[in-house]
Design a protein around this nucleic acid. Structure first.
Length: 214
DNA sequence: AGTCAAGGCCAC
DNA sequence: GTGGCCTTGACT
């Protein structure tokens, strides 16, 4: 699924962090910096074979719904710790890792892009999306979209379509306590072997992928 | 005691 | 209905 390129001459030492630089319009290349420290950034990239079955659909989902792409690609840092440098090989492993929410840090709300106020219902979100999700779940609200279910959900337009806002809450992984829902991102650059792991909510019947490139 | 997330409250 | 602020309870 992936091929990789790297300008990093040190191929044996895992980086301490990965900073995402960009995802192109069709989510076919993902550029990111790896670093041992913030003053020594090197440039790497993933190239995705979009001809592989299901790949493009998955990456479009990432592009449109992930905290990464909703953040102008500037404020998301995936931190790698010792646990994250081993590559999980099964969904069970992924579900264990997904509970390590501290691996993923984002300054902007993955739903609307507003300022994150803390972790709410499993994700770092803003205060308004926290309240919106709470009211929806508590009151068992059902919304309907007047468009085709693809409304823009950002800080300015989040009030316009509750249906699309709530769908986005579910897609990015918000959940009530006790519900099984996975939303996990990891780029593993240990020993110059790159892997992107994407795990979405099982309640949305979306694919769970674990892909690696050499 | 400090921190954090869930839930409550209430002006708008 | 929304969203900012507050209280509460669990946890360390």
């Amino acid at each position: 699924m992936f091929t990789t390129s790297s300008t990093n001459s040190d191929t044996t030492t895992p980086p301490s962090s990965v900073k995402l630089l960009s995802i192109d319009e069709h989510a076919q290349t993902i550029q990111f910096n790896t670093s041992q420290d913030t003053n020594n950034l090197t440039s790497d990239s993933l190239c995705i074979d979009s001809s592989e079955r299901g790949t493009q659909e998955l990456l479009n989902s990432i592009h449109h719904n992930s905290p990464i792409s909703n953040n102008n690609n500037s404020n998301c840092i995936l931190n790698l710790n010792s646990k994250a440098t081993s590559f999980p090989s099964s969904i069970t492993d992924l579900s264990l890792l997904s509970s390590s929410s501290s691996l993923f840090h984002c300054e902007n709300c993955p739903i609307c892009g507003d300022k994150v106020s803390g972790y709410h219902y499993g994700l770092p979100t803003c205060e308004s999306c926290k309240g919106f999700f709470k009211r929806t779940v508590q009151n068992k609200k059902e919304y309907h979209c007047n468009e085709q279910g693809n409304c823009v959900v950002d800080r300015l337009h989040r009030k316009r379509c509750a249906y699309c806002r709530f769908q986005k809450c579910l897609i990015v992984g918000m959940r009530v306590e006790g519900e099984s829902s996975l939303c996990f991102f990891l780029i593993d650059c240990s020993f110059n072997r790159f892997a992107l792991i994407v795990c979405f909510s099982v309640t949305q019947h979306t694919l769970i992928y674990a892909c690696s490139g050499v």
